[in-house]
Every structure is written in C-alpha cells, then in structure tokens.
Design a protein around this nucleic acid. Structure first.
Lengths: 355, 355
DNA sequence: GTGAAAGCGCTAACAG
DNA sequence: CTGTTAGCGCTTTCAC
C-alpha cells in the first residue's frame, strides 16, 4: 500500500498509483477519470483527488495504442520553415491544437530523400494525417495516395488533382490591387513582378490585368514586367517602366521586396509616393512593408487562414469526410500610405472572390 | 502490391502479420527485425521479406510504451515561429532528427496560459526532453525544474541560473564589428541600436565599445544611440549621429533593419556607402541585408548553431550527462559591400555598381 | 457500482 | 536457434 510519496521521484505516476491511492481498482479509476460508466460520486471524487495529489497525467501513448488513433499529425514543409510556410504552419497548429492534436513539424529542405525519411517516421509514429506545405503553389508530385491516412496540401498542390489542396487567391489578389487603384482614381497603371515561370506571378498578373481591363482601363498582359523576386529587380524594373510609360500613376508590385526597390528608384527620380505614383506590394510582409517610407499598401495572402483551412479539411478527412481538389482562400488588401485612397477606409479593406 | 493477408486493406500490418507471413512466432519476428539474438540467416531473411512485402513499419508507440522513452522532444517557442526562433528550431530539429528523435513544435504566442497547456500536453505525451526558445535573451521564469525531464533553454535563459541555456554571443558580435571597422582603417565610429532595455542591445554596445577603446579608438558608452528596432529609427538616428559627429566614417547598427534606415538617410545626405561611411548591420537577415544597396555587411548570430547546440545539450542530458548554466555560441562576420576592408575611407572613387 | 481480465503492438526475459 | 510468457499504461467488456 504505497500511500507514501508518489512514485518516489523518478517514475511518473500511472493510473495504477492513482487507483491504489484512492483505494479502488484500476478499471474503476479509469472510469472515474474519464467520466465513464456508473460510479458513486464519492468514488469519482476520491479518484480525482488522488490524481490531483499525485500529479497524474494519463500516458497518451498507451491511450493511442488502444484507440488506434494518436491525435497527432505531421506537417511536412519543403520550405525550411520559411517566410511562406511559417504562417501556414501557425494557422494549422492553431486549428489542430484546439482539437487537442499535436503537430510533428518536419522540414525536408526540399530534399526528396529527406521527405521520404520523414514520411516513414511519421507513418511509424502513426500520425492521424498529414499536411504538406511549401513555398510555391505549383503542383508537386504526390507524397503518396496509398498511405492509409488523409493528406491535405497547403500553399502547394499535388499533381494528382483529386487530392485536397488549399491555395491563396493570387488571381483575386491581383484584382484587389487593380480595384484599389481604380478607387484611387488611377488608371495609368503598371505591374512589376517576379519570374514568369512562377504560377503565382502569372495569376496575380492576370487578375490585375483583367480587373483593369474590365473597368475600362487600358493594360495588356504584354505590359507586365516579369523579372525576379528581389529589391534589385524592383529598382531596375521601375527604371524600365518609367522610361516606357513616363506618365504612369500607379504601380502594382508582385512582392513587397520588389515594391521596396521600386520605391527607391522613384525617390531617385524625384517621383513622390503616393502623390505622383501610388504603390501596392504583395505579401504584406510587415518588416518590409512597414519599414518602407512611406509604408506600403500590400496584398495579404492570409496564409494563416490557408493553414487553418488546411487543418480543417484534414480534420474532416480524419473524421471520414474527405474533401477533394483545390480550395481557394481569399486575399486581403491592407491599405497604408503608399496609396492614397479618396474614399472612406471602410470600403478599402474588402475581399474579391475569384471564380 | 502486397499480397492480401489477414486484414489486408484497412489495418496497418503488425508484427503479428509479419510473423504469420514468415511462418515464425512473434518473438522471433521481433528479433529478426531488430537484429537481436541468434537466428538462422534464412529466418532473418524470411522475416525481412515478409515485412517488406506487407509494408510493415513498426508501431513506435508500442515500442515507446515498453521502452519508457518516446524519442520525441518538445520545442516550445514564445516567438510565434518568428524570425529568431525559426533558425533555432531548424538547428535543433536537425541535430535531433539525426538521432531519430521527432519534434513537437509548440507556439505559445507568449501566453503563459498556452505555455502551461502545451507543457501539460508534452508531458502527457511523455516527451524525453524540452527545448524552450524565445525572441529575447532576457532570463524568463523557469518552465519548471521538477518536470522529471531535462530542459534546455535556447536564445533565452531561465531565471534559475543553474538550468542550461544556449545564447548567441552578442558581446562578441559587437567586438567583431569593431574589429572589422578597425581593419578597414575606420576609427571615427558610431553605434545606432535598439532600446536600451534589451539586454542584447546593451551587450552588443559594450562589446563594440570595449573593442574600439581597447584598440586605442575613442568611443564611449554615452555615444551609443539607443532607439528602437526599426528602419524608421535608423533613418532618424542617422540624422542625429551625423549632426553630432559629421566626420563619422563607420556606423555599426544593432540590426539590419536599423542599418537599412541609416543607409536611406546617408543616401539622402549624399554620403556614399562604403566610401564615405562604412556600415555594419546585425542579424544577417538576408532579405534585408541583400536587398539593401549596397548589400550590408552584417553580424550573423548563427542561430542554427544555437539550436543545434541546445539539442546536443538536451541529448546529453537525456543520456544522464546534464549540463548547467549559460553556454555562448560565437557570432560570425559576413562581409558584403557596405564595408570594404581593402580600401580605406575616401580612396575609393566612382566604383560602378550594377543596379 | 465495482473489480477482474483481455488486449492494443511490441520487446525482453526465459524455456525448450 | 526458436517459441512462450509477461508485461509497458490504459480502456473496455463482462461478471459479481
């Protein structure tokens, strides 16, 4: 009868200790702890007290072994916990944590060998599901369709188009930018963005284009300046754009970094932001956007929402309600001083849904 | 395709299935799979073949239950997977992963309630150890000294000074910056940094100060311009500094963001970098440091090493060789174009730099 | 109402 | 060499 000190320091108390302490059987203790079966209130309380006294925390592993479910999921990122996958993971962890699910984070460094290795590890740890995330939205080889557990892709998608994927609305983001410029009364617009081989760049450009054209503005896909995702290209692209279209009065940039570069060149050329030229960035990467002078209006992809949504789809799938195909999460326009809206702020922050 | 054995579809194969398939007992299968005991080679091979055929992966939970070790650790960050904790976690994950240890990542959002909740969860999942990380190096309340598992602090430390903590060498980083300036032949130096209440800011400043003074330069702790960790403060601080010391020829900044702001003001005032004024940042935050024109020389805290080291200390502690107190990981100087070790101030004229 | 017993998947003694 | 047995900590019938 070890009514003495709990587990004598080294061992963590088990349900057996609690049962002994409460003077009941293991089975009864289990029921009391989980509110199962029919027990006298006094018994329940006695067990609860013993558990509290011993600092008992049930061994989740043992539970999992029995339940055939671990209440864990794996999050695999190819992005080295980078700027894009982080918010996604945060959102996912948030949504999962609320459901008492813990997350194994795995960073493959974009190495297929490491990916396989992590996958094996996650499977042998019997995770209930998998979220695969990355830095680019381009379809990637499926991580496996016969894994026996549900998989959701976030901020990336599988070549197998049936697998569920959650993506930001790059097209809609482009539309948002265009709409905001038009609201500001700027119709002579330009667009400087990243490499054309990036699907995200093309989508943003076409959303921007079509929204401008749809509103009666003049802008053609050929006017888009594709380059790279860097400040340096922003500086260079701005020179090119201003030479080609000196009367431009608004520039939409494919990233906040590009926008920073553009701002530099504009300052150099004596063009004021936003009075002469309005500027919109993309990513709403706050250190960049806020550090700029003036702070940048930007499109926020709401990556936390992407992650959260991915988690919700995964939870649904784990509960036998799988989803299929691509799901789009809307972007958000964040207005700052690099654009000068002429209408009440309430109308600025809106969401445009893409088809 | 695995052949259809008992429970082929839904269930994952267990060692029992493998044993049956190989026509041996469970115990034998276990030994064969783990290379234990003495078995006939043929038997081993038969079991291995069966396992392969069935796609068997051992249930790590069951193993853990038996071993009393889970080969998992928890990483708790207060930093929302932010800029500082990410590399730390990467390094930790790296070192841990090599030892087949998986990582539960938990983000407390700096909320003590969430921290407690995560801690409970990690304990009930029986993690073998804990790494606590944050965004600031200031001592924080211990997460618990009587947890029964080892804890290592990384990029933060416990108020209980006996607990092991791995910290970047902010003091040494300041020294590095000073040394580099002196190497470049610049002795009239300035220092613009973050808020004085940040221990990191004070350490960097004193390292810088003492190294400058030690080399016969003149710089006093009173000359340090404390402000905030922002580009805006960099812009403002540069104005202040140049007004107070118009002949300054080198500025050490407490962060790359501050350095960006300083660079902006220098450009505005017509001072060339690095010809007229050399610039060193801190953090080596590549998007910031590389995006700057010219790219910034910066001090890298090697946070991945901090994380890796923390993991090593944790592994040691798990293997009953705990360590105690603070351990310092050295910084690294990354030279880029904002300083020019070859050419002393004023000698470099009209160098062309591609945009 | 409560206890005893079976077993989740696996490993580690022991027998044979 | 291989099979049997006894658990790891927990939940869950099923008797009493």
């Amino acid at each position: 009868m070890p009514s003495a000190e709990p587990g004598s320091e080294g061992r963590r108390p088990t349900i057996r200790d609690v049962a002994a302490q409460a003077g009941v059987s293991i089975g009864t203790a289990s029921k009391a702890l989980n509110g199962q079966g029919k027990l006298r209130v006094a018994t329940r309380e006695r067990v609860a007290a013993a558990a509290r006294e011993l600092g008992f925390a049930p061994n989740v592993l043992a539970k999992a072994l029995l339940a055939g479910r671990t209440y864990t999921v794996g999050v695999i990122t190819t992005d080295s916990f980078g700027r894009f996958s982080i918010p996604v993971m945060l959102g996912a962890e948030d949504a999962l944590g609320a459901g008492q699910i813990s997350v194994f984070m795995c960073d493959t460094r974009d190495d297929p060998a490491r990916e396989r290795q992590y996958l094996d590890m996650l499977l042998s740890r019997r995770v209930d599901g998998l979220i695969v995330t990355g830095r680019r939205i381009e379809p990637r080889p499926s991580i496996g369709v016969t894994l026996g557990i549900p998989v959701v892709y976030a901020m990336t998608q599988s070549l197998d188009t049936d697998e569920p994927a959650i993506l930001p609305d790059d097209y809609g983001g482009g539309q948002l930018a265009a709409g905001h410029f038009l609201q500001c009364g700027r119709t002579r617009v330009g667009h400087i963005t990243g490499p054309e081989r990036f699907l995200a760049a093309r989508k943003r450009a076409s959303g921007f284009c079509e929204a401008v054209i749809g509103a009666g503005g003049t802008f053609s896909p050929n006017d888009v300046l594709y380059g790279e995702w860097s400040e340096r290209w922003g500086r260079e692209g701005a020179h090119i754009l201003l030479r080609a279209a000196p009367d431009v009065e608004a520039i939409f940039c494919g990233s906040d970094q590009i926008a920073r570069g553009v701002a530099d060149t504009l300052r150099l050329l004596g063009r004021r932001v936003p009075q002469d030229i309005a500027l919109i960035g993309f990513d709403n990467w706050t250190p960049m956007a806020l550090g700029s002078d003036p702070p940048l209006t930007s499109i926020d992809m709401c990556l936390e929402d992407v992650g959260r949504t991915a988690a919700e789809h995964l939870l649904a799938a784990i509960n036998d309600s799988p989803t299929h195909g691509v799901h789009i999460v809307p972007c958000r326009l964040v207005v700052r001083d690099s654009t000068d809206p002429q209408v009440p702020a309430g109308d600025q922050v809106g969401q445009v849904r893409s088809a």
